[in-house]
Design a protein around this nucleic acid. Structure first.
Lengths: 120, 120
DNA sequence: CCTTTATATGAAAATATGTTCATATATTTA
DNA sequence: TAAATATATGAACATATTTTCATATAAAGG
């Protein structure tokens, strides 16, 4: 015999106070989204290699493609993502676009991540 | 008339010196991979919400499911990922598993990311 | 201007990620 | 020890991401 499905909330709440507190202190949704997008952009070996290489100084697209042993088109797509996340920017000199890190946060974030994985 | 395809390297190298330098200073592949996995783990709004909530103190799975308005199964899968990345750990008290942040790096990483997106 | 070079971009194809659903496990309680 | 609770997990499905390929654009050089 199957009981009639009761129409009550699906989600058990053990510590309502704790949940309420978490809700109060939660970040605004747009910030959470933006942060997730930032971390996601850094969450790819290829893009990380790019960022780490640019920490030493600017490079052009075909340099980066050579470094990553990947196609220039693929690198260009990755760079667009990094640009959209304000992680890198570029300057044009003739036909060549030189990419560089946008600010120090990037380098700091990578350094801190390294610390984490090295101690774990 | 289509010319016979020449068999030369696909990848143009404009600044060989710069590429060589980047190669020398590059991180070991396993570290790059581990870092990418770490950032990827943080690159999801749901998981970020979890981490941010846990920064205030430990919570159990069903608390987190209630907070995220998501299924406990989904949250459990996310927590597994965060555990694998050594971002969170848990302690059991009876039937309940309480999750907490593993160390301060996580909080620092999030704080720094916030700075980045707020200034951009 | 017509060609070449360096890069960007859109769309399709290939791949990875996240969620759901069913089921398994661990712990407490009856 | 059987039932209930809290959570974990595997596999299938849905969705998102990445790469590739073809084509577009922007600057420089004939």
């Amino acid at each position: 015999m199957i009981e009639e499905q009761q129409d009550r909330c699906q989600v058990r709440c053990i510590h309502d106070d704790r949940i309420a507190q978490a809700r109060r202190q939660a970040l605004p949704a747009p910030e959470t989204e933006a942060m997730a997008a930032l971390f996601k952009a850094m969450g790819d070996p290829g893009r990380l290699k790019i960022l780490w290489a640019l920490a030493e100084g600017e490079m052009c697209v075909c340099d980066l493609a050579a470094l990553l042993e990947s196609s220039e088109s693929a690198v260009s797509h990755q760079l667009r993502l990094l640009r959209q996340m304000a992680l890198v920017s570029n300057r044009r000199q003739g036909q060549v676009l030189y990419y560089r890190l946008n600010d120090d946060h990037v380098h700091l974030l990578i350094t801190m991540a390294l610390e984490h994985i090295r101690e774990a």
